[in-house]
Design a protein around this nucleic acid. Structure first.
Ligand SMILES: [Mn+2]
Ligand SMILES: [Mn+2]
Ligand SMILES: [Zn+2]
Ligand SMILES: [Zn+2]
Lengths: 146, 146
DNA sequence: TAGAGCATGCGAAAGCTTCTCATTTCCTGC
DNA sequence: GCAGGAAATGAGAAGCTTTCGCATGCTCTA
């Protein structure tokens, strides 16, 4: 099943590639680092190298199968490209990430690019804030001002 | 003159801090890396260490004097905090950066944060595209689709 | 002007990511 | 099914940005 997508990307169908793709499919909206993928596969009994995980993720990204994001700390996290574009809102306290799409913002971006003399390509919008989840260390603290 | 700002940040007024602040002032809307700052100061005859540049930039950032951004490649670039917030549009071909502010987008972000149950803090919006400058390698190429 | 403490420069180290290379695996054509 | 050539892998070394540790130097207050 995933064979098709890998072949379409011009890549050989190998165990590491299949396993990484499978794992990403189970992740849904969860964003995982290369290191996490590596450890999860190891724990699953797979024999795989960290370098391979990085290589494959980069290839998948180039092929449009996978998206890479860099949140505040600057390190890479990955997720399956599930078709539609979306942006992210991240809790700076607990790290929780939610996704959103806003047509107004998307439209304004196209207008801004046009206005500034750019042919628009991609974009990255990340909102940082504090979530109100009971489990978040931030929970309860009324309104911290720093 | 810059003494005031440094002191206000609770930091001692030292040659490295003054020089870095001065240099950033000459940069205007240009975004510079720590390494660039380091080399520019060295070329200017200053005796300074790269570790100090990083340390000072981090302190300035914490004090709100300086802003740090990470464009596509993930490395840090810095600019003086010139008061108002702004976002960036970057040419993926030549690297040219322009700044913009859009009230509609800013407002929608606040609504999204509210909607998703986050107390909004900062955000990072970077549009990637291709500029139409005569000097840009992209110039002339009608509309490349990859 | 002297003292306490903060800041600096240097080199070493951290942490993520990429590279190198010998070995293995995949895939095409027989 | 099998062999050959190309592509991919795993392991460790290396690369790069950024941070740390520490002996020395500088600032600032009194
Ligand atoms: Mn996502
Ligand atoms: Mn800027
Ligand atoms: Zn949270
Ligand atoms: Zn350009």
């Amino acid at each position: 099943m995933e064979d098709k997508e890998i072949r379409k990307a011009g890549l050989k169908v190998t165990a590491p590639r299949l396993k990484i793709l499978e794992l990403l499919e189970t992740c849904g909206e969860h964003h995982v680092s290369a290191e996490e993928i590596y450890r999860l596969l190891l724990a699953d009994g797979e024999e795989i190298g960290l370098a391979t995980v990085y290589r494959v993720l980069t290839q998948f990204e180039a092929a449009g199968l996978v998206e890479r994001h860099r949140f505040e700390d600057g390190y890479s996290v990955f997720e399956l490209n599930r078709g539609g574009h979306h942006d992210h809102i991240v809790c700076v306290t607990c790290g929780k990430v939610k996704e959103f799409v806003d047509d107004t913002i998307e439209q304004r971006q196209r207008e801004i690019a046009e206005d500034k003399g750019y042919e628009i390509g991609d974009h990255s919008l990340i909102i940082y804030g504090r979530c109100r989840d009971p489990g978040c260390p931030n929970h309860g603290k009324a309104d911290n001002k720093d």
